[in-house]
Design a binder for these strands. Structure first.
Length: 557
RNA sequence: UGGGGCGUCGUCAAAUGGUAAGACACAGGGUUUUGAUCCCUGCAUUCAGAGGUUCGAAUCCUCUCGCCCCAGCCA
């Protein structure tokens, strides 16, 4: 799974070629430019990894730059969340940059454009502007304000800046070509009046640059060499280049587009995620079922697994939908290496070992990792009363069921071989308890007579365990592609995406678990203490991901 | 139907005119005190389709088909 021979992707090839040609003096500088209008999700992780990896690989630098040119949508909480999330992923960005730090310079660039006769103040209303823009198949028409004099434009723009006009009264437009087949070149708006409070510049400005104007110039100002963005900006590249060609800038970065990430059984658009949160289909932006990085983190995903995932899926221009199992597999790969093993019973079934002394408690030694001696051992206790998993007993088991059934013998992990002697049921016929006998000669789990016992099951000592709530998560949507527009994606929600199990029985050592730190509950999956419900009295654990389970898969068929 | 992109295994993805990597998934088998892990084995005569150029084409040319993006004073 290591990308050791991993072939370079097309962006890397471009960068290598640029270095060979000594373009930008052989330097590489990239940037991750989120707008602080929401929380980051795993789709952003792809971009973050791409940008930082390219910079790191070629001894360059990657800036974290907030594209905060629309104060109507942006908030400080998002800025804070984004910074900590990028750090959590494992990337160093130093002092973050902000497009808003360039507002003064951006304004000066706009003035320069006006002076060159390449920008004008347009006084068309939003509706009229749309009319004048034309359509996909028809060219646009020149604005009646297109030929205003430079002096008038300068005067009007200054007054826009000074707050003399209301929103929508005037805009500053680049003078390019109203008949261009590329709509982005039909005199795009580069500045608009917006009387909103900006999280950083507060009320210092009432005009704000549009993305197409701010982004390319911010890139140039920071000395970005390769400006990586998603496919939908391909049509904007001519404008990106036009702006930098018209203005005197320190450099002219190269914009390269790649396909954004899609994953099946989930949604990755900010709009849809927002609906899930606002309509309370999930419990907040950090709900462990969500693909937000905060949710994923709380669920127990490791940054390493996400970085590895981003390496594995590659970078191309083909729009793709990645199988969720690839992400899960990256996670299991990582957790298998580092998660200590522990025993926990999620759906407890009481077992009494009838030939085990009532007052006896025994200490047993369990490995913290079956393949890694260096992770050490721990002590667990055994007594007459234990719990096993309900799934590990069947009254009428099929062939190849290696677990407990009437008269069957199994191994209790690290303890003894036990045989089921009696099944106790309540009035309605539900199995409530098992009466078993143990073989005192098999301490540790090996039979001196060499008899083979195929099944090994986990258990916990009923007299020495902790109660906890355990939350099991399943995919958020029923359909592989919830984003298709045939129906409202909300209809597609999986009603069983969250299953909370009360009074699960956990091995005592888990009392020391730290939030978001992975444990493998043997035979069940990887779990971590929930960071919001870490109370020692009523701990809540999240299932990060289950173990692969070919038995479950086979019995489903 | 204007413009810009994209089509290689079920899903991602290499191959840069020299004879289809790899990963996940899937199917078999082995080891195992986790039905986990680990280890083997198999899995595209064919690259959206059709023509053409060439000793040789997934790669070059032509046409056709399919999918995505663009008409915010959002990014």
């Amino acid at each position: 799974m290591e990308p050791e021979n991993k072939k370079e992707h097309f962006i890397e090839s471009i960068i290598i070629k640029d270095i060979e040609n000594n373009k930008n003096d052989g330097k590489v500088c990239t940037r991750f430019p989120p707008e602080p209008n929401g929380y980051l999700h795993i789709g952003h992780a792809k971009s973050i990894c791409l940008n930082f990896n390219m910079a790191n690989k070629f001894n360059g630098k990657c800036n974290l730059r907030f594209d905060d040119s629309n104060p109507a949508k942006e908030k400080q909480v998002y800025i804070d969340s984004i910074k900590s999330t990028v750090n959590w992923l494992g990337f160093e960005f130093g002092t973050p940059f902000f497009a808003s730090d360039y507002f003064e310079r951006l304004h000066d660039f706009a003035v320069e454009l006006i002076k060159k006769g390449k920008a004008y103040v347009c006084s068309l209303s939003a509706d009229d502007l749309r009319q004048y823009r034309g359509t996909l198949t028809e060219p646009g028409k020149d604005s009646p304000y297109r030929e205003r004099s430079i002096e008038e434009n300068l005067n009007l723009f200054t007054r826009m800046k000074n707050g003399e006009f209301d929103e929508g009264e005037h805009t500053l437009r680049a003078k390019i070509d109203m008949s261009s087949p590329n709509i982005n070149l039909r005199d795009p708006i580069i500045y608009r009046v917006k009387k909103a409070f900006h999280p950083r510049t507060h009320d210092q400005w009432c005009i704000y640059p549009m993305y197409d104007f701010a982004h390319c110039l911010s890139d140039a100002l920071e000395g970005i060499t390769h400006s990586l963005c998603s496919l939908e900006f391909e049509d904007h590249r001519p404008l990106y280049d036009w702006t930098l060609d018209e203005l005197e800038t320190p450099c002219h970065p190269r914009q390269i587009e790649f396909a954004r990430l899609n994953i099946n059984y989930t949604v990755l658009s900010k709009r849809k995620l927002q609906r899930l949160v606002e309509e309370n289909h999930v419990q907040g932006w950090d709900d462990p079922r969500l693909p937000t990085l905060e949710g994923i983190k709380r669920r127990g995903y490791t940054p390493e697994s996400i970085r590895n995932f981003c390496d594995i899926i590659g970078v191309s221009k083909k729009e793709s939908r990645i199988d969720m199992t690839i992400l899960e597999n990256c996670l299991r790969d990582d957790l298998n290496e580092k998660a200590p093993r522990v025993m926990a019973v999620l759906r407890p079934l009481k077992v009494t070992i009838e030939n085990y002394p009532d007052d006896k408690t025994e200490a047993l030694t369990a490995k913290n990792h079956p393949q890694k001696e260096e992770m050490g051992t721990r002590t667990i206790t055994f007594s007459r009363q234990i719990y096993v998993e309900q799934d590990d007993f069947m009254e009428d088991p099929p062939k190849k069921f290696f677990r407990l059934g009437p008269g069957r013998e199994v191994r209790l992990r690290y303890a003894y071989l036990v045989t089921c002697q009696k099944v106790i049921k309540d009035e309605s016929g539900n199995v409530t308890e098992l009466i078993c006998t143990y073989d005192p000669e098999t301490k540790g789990g090996n039979a001196p007579d060499g008899r083979k016992v195929k099944g090994t099951i986990h258990w916990v000592n009923a007299n020495d365990c902790i109660d906890a709530e355990v939350r099991l998560y399943d995919r958020l949507f029923k359909d592989e592609n919830p984003e298709q527009d045939k129906q409202d994606f909300i209809e597609n929600l999986n009603p069983h995406s969250l299953e909370a199990l009360e009074s699960c029985k956990l091995e005592k050592s888990l009392i020391n678990a730290a939030p978001e730190t992975a444990y493998q509950f043997e035979r069940l999956g990887y779990f971590c203490l929930d960071s919001k419900n870490a109370d020692k009295k009523n701990p809540v654990f999240n299932r990060t991901v289950s173990l692969r389970d070919v038995w479950a898969k086979r019995s489903k068929k």
